[in-house]
Each structure stands twice: as C-alpha cells, then as structure tokens.
Design a binder for these strands. Structure first.
Lengths: 151, 151
DNA sequence: TCCATTATATTCGACATCGAACTATCCGAT
DNA sequence: ATCGGATAGTTCGATGTCGAATATAATGGA
C-alpha cells in the first residue's frame, strides 16, 4: 500500500486539478473559434499579438513572452512566414539573431482576429464578479511568479 | 483606429493572461521531471493515473476526464500500449467500445511516478496559503463549470 | 589575442493535438 | 423490423511541442 497523502498534498492536488480543468475548458472554447474564423492556432495568435502590441522582436524574446521552447518557436514562425504574416530580418546589432516583424497582411489578420478573441474571453470571465476576477488574477500572478522565480 | 476596449474586457484579458501564464509556468516545472524520471508525458501520466484510481474504463470516459479529443486519446493509448503499460479489451456490453486497463507494468510505473509528481505539485502550491488555495480552487471550479455548462 | 562560455537559431525525431472523414455499433421512434 | 441519428474508435494530415545535437556568433577572462 502507498502511504496516505498528507492533507497538504491532497489540497494541492485538488487545487491543481481544478486549475488545469478550468484552463483546458476555456481553451476548448477559445481555440476552435480562432481556428475556424482565422485559421490561427493559439500560439500563432500569441506571436502575432505580441508583435502587434510590442513591435518587432527577436525570437528569443517571443520565447520568453509565450513560454515556449526555441525549437517550437522556429516551427511556428516558419508557418507564419510561409503564409506571409511575418518576416524574419537580420538583426544588425547581433548577427546570431533574427528579428521577427509583422507584414501588412499579418497586421491585418491580427487586427481582425483580436476583437473577437477578446470578446470571447470577456464572455467567459463574466461568470466571475469583478472582485473574483481580481482575486483570481492575484493568485495566479503570485503562483506564476513564485514558480518562475524558483527556476 | 480600433475602439478602446471596455474596462470589463481589459480586466478579463488581464485575468486570463495571468491564468495562462501560471499554468504554463507550472507545466514547465512539472513536465520535464515526468519526462526525465519516467519517460511520461503529461497526458500519458493522466491516462495512467485515471486508470490507477478509477480502474479500467472506455476511451470515451478517458476523453471526458482529460478533456482531450478522441483522436488524441487513440494516439496516446497506442503509445502506452506499445510500451505494454496498458491493454485494450473488448467491452462485452458494447461492441463499439474498448476498455483500457493497466498492465502490471503500467501499475508499477504509475505507482512510482505518482508520489514525486504529487510532491512537486505540493511544493508549487505551497506558495499559496491554505485559504488562497481553497479560493483559487473555488474560482477555477466555478469558471470551469460555467464554461463547460455553456457548451 | 585566444579560448571557454554563453546565447541565438535551426534541424531532427518523437510525441501531442485537433478536426474531418470514416466504419461499426447502438438505440429510439415509427 | 427497420431506419435515422447518436456514439465509440480509428485514420489521416496539419500543426504544436519538447529535448538533444548542431552551427554560428557574441562575450568575458587569461
């Protein structure tokens, strides 16, 4: 027989399961719409959105923002570049780096996709009150920072 | 010019970003350990864990529990079966269905992998107090149910 | 200057993931 | 009894995702 988990462990597991399921459920709501309406995956959207709001940046910067691996980002940027939504430019200050920037087409795509996405997120979060949203945000921020800080 | 987002939208977006980042950060902590120590992905672990705690079940049941698509589950069970961690058995009551069950090897694997995983989750969640964990769980549960309920 | 280390990006192989199309089966209504 | 719709799984193609290995370039110290 395995030892009975401590109360602290049971509580942590329970919390984690609920956190996971909530995010999965929201993703299951958001992502199909993004795919159907704009043929964009979640990560593709994330890249375009980051470039749209922060301007051109090196792939390593995008990796940090989106919390994905470098090899993954290479693939995603490849696919976006194939559709001419983004361009890779040599970085004059660092010959290792490629700066990624939106093309006019890419700018158009993200400008059209963003409002609907934001609306859907708002609809989902409307199930919580303002205060609840604020508290959820605070707890997630605290958790995220603690985890990232311990790496 | 795009219209300025309403305060409600800005709040929802902010909350959602924090939620996403927290889950990603935790996954980045948990999954590499699972992969290195037991050569298991998150979903493989989820399947083994579900079978371990609930006993054999049809793939459709696993899909519901793990919130993944049927085609995805077919792939994951294929990979687990190839390593002889699980078996597919014909369901005598429904000839369409396959019941999935752990092999002795699979039972051994999940028995060994579970404690470490639980410990890591506990360590992560320790950054929140009991009351905060309870509140986070409550909010996620509320959110998850609301979203799933609207499908 | 030269070298070890670090950082940026790519390639490769394995696996996850989805939706669409498909087969087989079940089940309820006629 | 049967027929139409729902359900269980699989297959396929596209994409995401990671880690390991690789190539190149920057950087700091001997």
């Amino acid at each position: 027989m395995a030892a009975a988990p401590s109360p602290g462990t049971a509580r942590a597991l329970d919390t984690f399961v609920k956190l996971r399921r909530a995010v999965n459920a929201i993703g299951a709501r958001l992502n199909p719409a993004l795919l159907k309406e704009h043929r964009l995956t979640e990560t593709q959207f994330g890249v375009l959105e980051a470039l749209h709001h922060k301007g051109p940046m090196a792939q390593a910067r995008l990796c940090e923002k989106l919390l994905v691996s470098g090899s993954n980002l290479t693939t995603v940027v490849d696919n976006l570049e194939r559709r001419s939504y983004v361009r890779r430019l040599a970085d004059p200050d660092d010959r290792r780096a490629h700066r990624v920037e939106l093309t006019p087409t890419g700018r158009q795509i993200i400008s059209r996709a963003f409002p609907g996405h934001a609306t859907r997120i708002t609809e989902v979060l409307r199930h919580l009150t303002r205060a609840e949203q604020a508290e959820l945000g605070r707890l997630c921020r605290k958790l995220g920072r603690a985890v990232a800080g311990t790496v």
